[in-house]
């Protein structure tokens, strides 16, 4: 198990190094001059030269890359050109919206998907299965921003249970969670629909396996065989999807953040791209890549916890 974890850790570090090189190359090296790009076509040459010096573009490539990476390791993400504040402060403000929102949505989606998928699989072809599968079809098809607007219409404008948008900060955790609830639901439902379908089909695959027949021959009822033998085996493909979904929820919530006026990472990256603030874009992208790789690492560890066959492999 330790060897497996070390192996995954090695691959994590290699992934991070490769990712940092690619991001650095895409944003700073090719094509053209980032300083000129950031300042737009009408910029004066001396402004561009000033920015070039500030960004260190007159330095050799290797030095610039190493400066950037060592900066990241120290938590120094550089200075935003448009906001005139350290990028780390910008991120720090927003990560405490985006991260809780992603975790909240993931918990909701798992809480909905697991029971729905297991129930549908255990009643394959029955009315419950058909209903759940129909609902998930709808869940996959409905765009989440439209669903978000419907939620606002019903729960914020008509019922007045929640506010329609904005984020009050974490000084009052209850209010903060409350303001994240509608966005989390809007994000979670389509994900839950996908997850429930994966859970169902993975379980059905497992229920057709020989060891389920063995379990039944031992005297387990259909339901006991499902819970004791099928569910844990069915988790592997489900974990893969959960890992992918978390990455999507963290970085891909831009539209939902717009709909609910949430000051999250999605909005930050969107605004930075509009303002051509490459320093912010570069760092936020690196941060997101780091999170995705970390989540994949955790998913790999979860695989090994579920499946003993992986523990013995390096």
């Amino acid at each position: 198990m330790i060897r497996y974890a070390l192996g995954r850790l090695t691959s994590l570090i290699i992934s991070l190094i490769v990712a940092s090189v690619v991001i650095f190359a895409v944003i700073e090296v090719i094509p053209g001059d980032p300083a000129a790009f950031m300042l737009g076509v009408n910029a004066r040459p001396d402004t561009i030269a000033a920015l070039r010096a500030e960004m260190g573009l007159d330095q050799p490539l290797i030095t610039r890359y190493l400066d950037w990476v060592t900066g990241l390791l120290r938590g120094d993400f550089g200075q935003s050109w448009t906001y005139k504040t350290p990028v780390s402060e910008l991120i720090n403000d927003r990560i405490w919206v985006s991260l809780p929102l992603a975790i909240y949505a993931l918990i909701l989606s798992t809480l909905i998907a697991f029971p729905a998928g297991i129930y549908a699989a255990s009643r394959r072809g029955g009315a419950g299965d058909v209903t759940i599968m129909g609902a998930t079809q709808l869940g996959v098809a409905i765009p989440n921003f439209w669903f978000a607007m419907i939620l606002v219409l019903i729960f914020a404008i008509n019922l007045r249970w929640f506010s329609a948008g904005g984020f009050p900060g974490w000084s009052d955790p209850f209010q903060a969670l409350k303001s994240l609830t509608l966005p989390a639901i809007a994000l979670a439902l389509p994900q839950a629909a996908i997850l429930a379908r994966v859970m169902r089909s993975s379980l059905l695959d497992m229920l057709g396996e020989d060891f389920i027949r063995t379990a039944r021959a031992k005297g387990l009822s259909r339901r006991q065989a499902l819970w004791k033998h099928a569910v844990r085996n069915a988790l592997i493909p489900v974990l893969t999807i959960i890992g992918l979904q978390f990455s999507f929820l963290l970085a891909g919530g831009i539209i939902i953040e717009q709909v609910f006026f949430l000051p999250g990472l999605g909005r930050l990256i969107f605004q930075s791209i509009s303002a051509r603030d490459l320093i912010v874009v570069e760092s936020v992208v690196m941060l997101l890549v780091f999170t995705v790789i970390m989540v994949n690492f955790l998913v790999d560890l979860a695989y090994a916890a579920v499946d003993p066959r992986l523990r013995t492999k390096a």
């Binding site: 396996e209 020989d210 060891f211 027949r213 379990a215 085996n233 499946d307 003993p308």
Partner: peptide
Amino acid sequence: EPMTALNPVQ
């Protein structure tokens, strides 16, 4: 088929 008759995770 003994290869598949046992639950691989127990």
